[in-house]
Design a binder for these strands. Sequence first.
DNA 1: GTAACTGCAAAATATTTGCATCCTT
DNA 2: AAGGATGCAAATATTTTGCAGTTAC
Lengths: 146, 146
Amino acid sequence: MSKEIILDNNTEELLRKHRLSVTESRLKILNLFMDQPGALAHGDIEKKAGEKFDRVTVYRTLQTFVEKGIIHTIPTADNSVRYALCRDECSEGHHHDHHVHFICTSCDTTYCLDDVVTPELKLPKGYVAQQIEVLAKGICNECSGK
Amino acid sequence: MSKEIILDNNTEELLRKHRLSVTESRLKILNLFMDQPGALAHGDIEKKAGEKFDRVTVYRTLQTFVEKGIIHTIPTADNSVRYALCRDECSEGHHHDHHVHFICTSCDTTYCLDDVVTPELKLPKGYVAQQIEVLAKGICNECSGK
DNA sequence: GTAACTGCAAAATATTTGCATCCTT
DNA sequence: AAGGATGCAAATATTTTGCAGTTAC
């Protein structure tokens, strides 16, 4: 149906832009990221996709996307690894993740707050920062309004 | 037997303060943390301890220490989990990790920069931060001087 | 002596690799 | 047609659990 063509348009273009062949798994996984505001863990993807693809494919797809700069990992204090879409400024092998990540302690959603700028840090003498990540925990927009 | 109370004084006292029984594994693992400025991953501990204790003991000891507020986990973007000593303000079930963590891309040491204050963040409307973690990557004091 | 801790074995999870087959270009 | 991607099987690695023996208090 025509609905699928429109839906896939974005993602397909994104894949081509990164010189990746357009496959069903990649389109579907990419759509999962597009369809929701937060970040996804490996497990989420297996579940949400309705156990459609192999676990190994998910691993390899995520790894490819990270390498190509389509998604990035979000640091978390617990062991879990979460992935989120990169903004346009990210390019292969060189992420610009200067936005803030926000984890809601109520609904457990992880957001990339693209518009929140990472503040300046005064580091002790001798320390030179190349990249700064900010990870905020608290109550998100959705949950605080209810 | 009566132990070398003086040597173990620091770590032993710390364990007692948290009402943990003082055992050899706990003393040794705690000493590993005391003896170096950075953070340790589970694997580091197994290695540094000279394969003295069981892997399971390390898992359980680290978990106990985290629960009691003796150490805390440090978020990292790669999958690894690292642990570092908490400052005095940390108490059971309630960490005050408002200092900055710094990972040196040269020597791969993780530091807790206790004196660097986490800056204020302006979050979008509806978002309320309860805890903010800052993770800086770059060149550390040691490495930049060489 | 009792409760808590450790170490071994084994189970449960998570991640990686090899290879034959299928799909994209 | 050629190269890359997928899926299955299996190898590794990581983390958890149960339980018997040991240690701390």
